[in-house]
Amino acid sequence: MRRTLRHHRYALRVALGRLAQHPFSTLANVLVISLTLALPIIAASILVSVQPVARDIPVSPEATLLIRPGTDMSATRELARRLEQEHGEHIASVRVVPRDEALETMKQNPAWTDALSVLPDNPLPDAIVVTLRDLPEMAQEAARLATLWRQLDNVDAVQLDRDWVRRLEALLHAARVGLGLLAVGVALVVLATVFNTVRMQALTQREEIGVARLVGATESFVRRPFLYLGGLTGLVSSILAIGLARAALAPLNEALARLSSTYGTEFTLHLPDALSLLLATIFVAILAALSARLSVTRNTQF
């Protein structure tokens, strides 16, 4: 056990020594890998920041029927019942929202409080909120129903305003696929860079490898420092990439804060959670070590 630990300590020392021997080359490699890694981290940050916003908004299409002012509440409730009866196959639920309830809900939003306080009376109409079933053909069907309902007595207007949420969902899905592809591309860059670095190192250390074999070194002993070299390169690059991504998000957030304040809301981009970053860092270190192993196995057969 102690011997194994000593072997690992020796390998780590040799790997650090080799990295320190060529500081500019080491720095260049780490920079290339970390800049490449920073891209998917920033992309993931955008995705994890936008996802909760999209999740808070119902994805099922909703139609809001704004009732003509002066219409009796009982007539409104009757209309809601009729809608449910006539279009039950397309409707998931129907809810009547009285104008007072709608006003109270709006008042709870700080962005509206000031504006509503200066109004002499409630400007909102009664409304019927119809949640449509989430079917594949519902986008077209919802548009047809909206046109139909606009012609009903007592209905002033119909708002069908959830299409953009579905589009956002589709966009996020596309972004997730894109992020996956980007991650594969980045993994290939890490593999190639570490492979080449270790290849160069193995060629430089040819004499030492030969002597080590001459005095009884096993292949594990020969390979181990290179595995550490790859693993360390991956680890340092990942940490630096997280730092770079964090630095890049700061000016982005500043601009976003200005934009979102005009909508009376707050929105910031943040890095993925610590556990995800830790797992990603470990994954990159292992990937780099595996690349180093592949390289050293191929390039030390002499």
Binding site: R2, R3, T4, R6, H7, Y10, E207, E208, G210, V211, A212, L214, V215, G216, A217, T218, F221
Partner: peptide, 23 residues
């Protein structure tokens, strides 16, 4: 087959590192 990137004693120490002897 001496290694010229290290001093004399470190050349002699290599076989002992290979067998994992305490430094």
């Amino acid at each position: 087959h001496l290694l010229y990137d290290r001093n004399a004693i470190n050349n002699v120490l290599l076989p002992l590192a290979v067998i994992g002897l305490a430094p």
